[in-house]
């Protein structure tokens, strides 16, 4: 009988879109704290897109449920031992906070105590949602997901993806829903006092590359079922893993951004390079999460 993974691409889309949303939200808050006047447009775009992306991901997840209309029961049949239960709660709170955050940006009300409260609580819940994506998998005890590394891998991948998406938005000059009176434009790429997106992009790419390689090495030195899971991942998805996840999604972005920083540490990547590398990071991030999700579900030879 043909094998099908119990969780299909809709779960990947939830983890991927949710991760992008969390990454954008965190970047938006970072830019707001850094210089909210200078980066109003970019921070506002992050604020608007975050709930759309996270909500879109949740919609994909709901269609994957056998009984989607019973989703609300996760709140009143809450199981404190279940990561999925906590995830439902945390994502619901984050959705509310991110919608309020976006509304405050839309109304250009970014100075009040409510805004500051949302900045603080929103950051906490964004990190909780970002951590939950990996924790959901690692809590299930399957050999490829166990051990906790997946939590860090998914969180960093999400923040890196969010950074890449914001760089795309910045380079393409996409902007909507920003009040007319906000006259100041996004920081110019050559402004030494501006936020250095390239440096963040470089650091996150390097961190994720170290985490992924560290994870793979620790898997290959693990117990029998762990090594079987790692071997299975490479047997089934080796080409995509090396090509899109490692080389395209991490090594090239790292080298490109590093080259740009070495040339001029205070400048941003050239537009063409920024667009290409950001797109590669997003594609690589999706491939990474999809492969980890599917490979983790492959039935391994039963050891008894």
């Amino acid at each position: 009988m043909e094998w099908h993974a119990p969780w299909d691409i809709r779960v990947t889309l939830d983890l991927f879109l949710g991760g992008l949303g969390v990454g954008l939200f965190l970047l938006s808050i970072l830019l707001t704290v850094y210089d909210k006047n200078r980066y109003h447009k970019l921070a506002a775009m992050g604020a608007y897109l975050a709930p759309v992306l996270v909500g879109g991901g949740i919609l994909f997840l709901v269609t994957e449920l056998g009984r989607p209309l019973r989703l609300i029961t996760t709140l009143y049949n809450f199981n404190p031992q279940s990561m999925t239960s906590w995830g439902s709660l945390v994502q619901m709170v984050f959705m509310v906070l991110s919608v309020i955050y976006a509304w405050l940006y839309f109304k250009n009300n970014t100075t009040g105590s409510l805004f500051k409260t949302i900045l603080g609580t929103g950051t906490v819940f964004a990190l909780l949602v970002g951590g939950y994506h990996g924790l959901l998998l690692s809590s299930l005890g399957r050999p490829l997901w166990a051990g906790g590394m997946v939590v860090a891998l998914f969180l960093v991948s999400s923040v890196l993806g969010g950074t890449a998406l914001l760089i795309l938005i910045k380079e393409l000059g996409i902007s909507f829903g920003v009040p007319q009176k906000v006259g100041r434009e996004i920081a110019s790429a050559s402004d030494a006092k501006g936020f250095n997106f390239t440096a963040l992009f470089c650091i996150l790419s390097a961190l994720q590359l170290i985490l992924v390689l560290g994870w793979q090495i620790s898997l290959s030195r693990g117990a029998l079922d762990t090594t079987a899971a790692a071997t299975s991942l490479m047997d089934q998805f080796g080409g995509l893993w090396v090509g899109l996840v490692l080389l395209g999604g991490l090594v090239l972005p790292l080298l490109g951004s590093l080259y740009s920083l070495i040339k001029n540490k205070s400048s941003e990547m050239p537009k063409g390079m920024a667009l290409t590398l950001s797109a590669l990071v997003i594609v690589g991030g999706f491939t990474f999460k999809h492969i980890v999700l599917i490979a983790g579900q492959i039935k391994l030879p039963f050891l008894f």
């Binding site: 969780w7 056998g66 996760t74 809450f78 199981n79 990561m83 999925t84 239960s85 809590s139």
Partner: peptide, 27 residues
């Protein structure tokens, strides 16, 4: 532990049972 709606539960005989009315099919 994994079930988000307590559809999977332990009964007083130590059996692991499933309540189809609570199951949301999350797998």
């Amino acid at each position: 532990k994994a079930c988000p709606t307590k559809a999977m539960y332990k009964d007083d005989k130590g059996l692991t049972l499933h309540n189809p009315d609570k199951c949301i099919g999350c797998k």
